[in-house]
Design a protein around this nucleic acid. Structure first.
Lengths: 213, 213
DNA sequence: GAACAATCTAGTAATTCTACCCGTTTAAAC
DNA sequence: GTTTAAACGGGTAGAATTACTAGATTGTTC
């Protein structure tokens, strides 16, 4: 018989924690070795010699949050797998967790099927991310106004906008395009007016957000 | 007995296509209604009256690629579910697919378990993305130098960098922070030197890329 | 082809930015 | 306790910017 997967769960809300425990208990291949109310307790448990294959960490916790705990665990205990839990579907949270080496990411409204699937996958060394994770990560690509932008501006203006955003001065742009720096100024000023932004800084911002550079 | 899930598979490589078909045939709840070599064939099949609940589209196809096909299908056939397939784990591809409404995303080295899980989930109206998708999306957030940036700059400099990136002039910033515009200039100039960029434009670029604004 | 709008071009003046300069303060290093 | 380094505050001269105005060119409409 296969050894059970040892799981440790950390969440500051006792209700949530117990809920997860009772769900996990329904999975026969899983053994709960401990539960903790914050990151510090997780690390303390490990220092006392408790070992888990998969650690489930809530993101929002007092004293020591999930992200710090994740970092510490990954540093000190080679091979440990960590699944992050959160209620908030925020890009930055997810991104940071993934960067710090999280093996999985679930939301608290997950199902027992998804939970067990995640644990098994992660334990095998694979990654598991809830579908919503990909959605949240893909969203902020906004800047759809790109199309409107191309219609609003003339070719010359677009050309100059790109060069301005790359940090060239009027003089430099004038040399590149074989026109007077004054002319470049005029185009730049027209751009600032048309796009209703504040100075060069505004142009650069807009250019970057619309991926012109 | 539940009606079977009708699946249509499109991939320009016959080998891959047949491979998927033979895998799908092992899933009893699934019925393959057609297979196609490109997007046009998919649309033609639909025009001939063939209906599928879930369409699996390869991203790279001649004549009409997966993305265009996805867009067309979602526009013309309400409620249809689409899973995108690809070999390439590239951010832009995934992002575009999600923006255009893809319900799932898999890589061609997927397993029968993952494939059937994806089909069932998507058919229920949920999303399914392979774990690697989230990884690919999180990666190009490059700006890891953010940390280095915070260490390199003083608080005051960071403060001024943010304001500069928001389009304020030295005079305006001076007024906000109750210091001389000359002093703002000095800080701005130090920033330009420290960060080795060209003028305001360079500062704005860097600030945006590091998400300071 | 005259009238019209949009675009590209350019000049002038006022303002702002940039590249130097220096003194003070603060904290760490010797 | 002196030395160093870093952050902060300010000045001046020259370059680049912004805000104006306006002529030349192009394409469109009637």
């Amino acid at each position: 018989m296969e050894p059970k997967i040892r799981v440790l769960i950390a969440d500051d809300h006792q209700l949530v924690r117990k809920g997860f425990v009772s769900i996990l208990e329904q999975i026969p291949q899983v053994e709960i070795v401990a539960d903790a109310a914050n990151g510090r307790e997780v690390l303390d448990a490990f220092r006392r010699g408790i070992r888990a294959d998969v650690v489930m960490l809530d993101y929002e916790m007092p004293i020591m949050n999930g992200l710090e705990t994740l970092e510490q665990l990954k540093k000190d205990y080679f091979g440990i797998k960590v699944i992050m839990l959160t209620m908030l579907n925020e890009r930055s949270i997810i991104q940071q967790a993934i960067e710090k080496g999280a093996d999985g990411f679930l939301f608290k409204n997950t199902s027992i099927e998804e939970l067990s699937a995640a644990i098994f996958k992660v334990h095998k060394g694979e990654k598991y991310f809830a579908g919503e994770v990909a959605l949240a990560l893909a969203k902020p690509a906004a800047s759809i106004q790109n199309q409107a932008l191309l219609e609003l501006l003339s070719e010359r203006e677009l050309e100059i906008l790109k060069l301005v955003a790359q940090g060239f001065s009027s003089t430099e742009i004038g040399q590149q395009l074989f026109i007077s720096p004054r002319t470049v100024d005029t185009h730049r000023n027209n751009l600032i007016q048309k796009l209703e932004v504040k100075g060069i800084a505004g142009l650069v911002q807009l250019a970057i957000k619309n991926k012109l550079v």
